[in-house]
Structure formats: C-alpha cells, structure tokens
Amino acid sequence: MKEIHPDVRAGLSMARELRHRVSEVRERTDGIFARRPSPSGLVIPEVDVIGRLRNLYLEPGTCAKFGNQELAAEIMAAIIESSQDVRRQYQIAMNNPELLPRPFVEVVQEWQNGSDLLSPNFSKAQQGIIDK
C-alpha cells in the first residue's frame, strides 16, 4: 500500500478539526437561552439562541387580568426582551478569547516549517496535545 502524501494527511486532519470545531460551536450554542419577564412580571418566555420560543409561563390569572391585545403586548414584550438577552449571551460566548481555536494557517505553517512528520496539531498551543 502506498504512503499517504503529507499534504493529504494534513488536509484530512484539517477536515477532522473543522468537524470538531463545528461540533463545539453547536454544543456551546445549544446551552444558550434566556428567560426575561414581561413588564408586569406575569409572563416569562424561554427563547433559545435561534430565536425559537421554547416555553411560555403565564402566572395564574394572567389571562383574566388582561384583554387580548394587552396580553399579546405583554407576551411580545417579554419575548423581545428575552431575544435581546439571548443575543447578548451569544455574543459573549462566541467572542470569548479563551475559547477561540488556533487559526488553520498558523498551524499548517508551523507544521510545514517543523521537522514533525505527524499530522498538524490543531489544539491550543499551550496544551501541546497531538490530535490523532
């Protein structure tokens, strides 16, 4: 059987690393949601990072207290506030410098310039762990 060319091995490592990075981002975003109350505090929606309404809590007696338009306004105000909060949480989570991976270009250049014949190591520089 023929040897795999080092550049092909590097490309396969990059594809594997990209799949891992996408998976990590998905896991991080799946845990982001917000529950912000309405102005009266009687309505609390739960909104996820995609903007979907996952849950809606109405305090007992809320429907009797408000008319149709007032209740709709309470619900919409709470959903808007929750959506803004989840957007803030997303920006914080995605822009955390400690969670940013090493750039592909930096890793491949380091690998090509070095004497290491293994596939490129995409883990954080300070960890020094080779992903096999």
Score class of each variant (00 low, 15 high):
M1P: 11
K2P: 13
E3G: 14
I4H: 03
I4L: 06
I4G: 02
H5A: 06
P6N: 02
R9F: 05
A10F: 09
M14N: 07
R16K: 12
E17W: 12
L18V: 12
L18R: 11
R19S: 13
E24D: 15
E24K: 14
E27R: 14
R28I: 15
R28D: 15
D30I: 04
G31N: 15
I44Q: 08
P45C: 01
P45W: 03
I50V: 10
I50E: 12
G51V: 00
G51L: 06
G51C: 04
R54E: 13
N55I: 02
Y57L: 13
P60K: 00
T62S: 12
T62Y: 08
F66Q: 00
F66M: 05
N68L: 08
A73S: 06
E74M: 07
I79W: 02
I80T: 14
S82V: 13
S82P: 13
S83M: 13
V86E: 10
I92R: 14
I92A: 09
M94K: 01
N96W: 00
N96I: 03
P97S: 01
E98Q: 15
L99Q: 10
L100V: 05
R102Y: 01
V108H: 10
W111T: 02
Q112F: 09
Q112C: 14
N113L: 15
N113C: 15
G114I: 07
L117V: 13
L118A: 14
S119R: 09
P120F: 05
K124P: 02
Q126Y: 14
K132A: 10
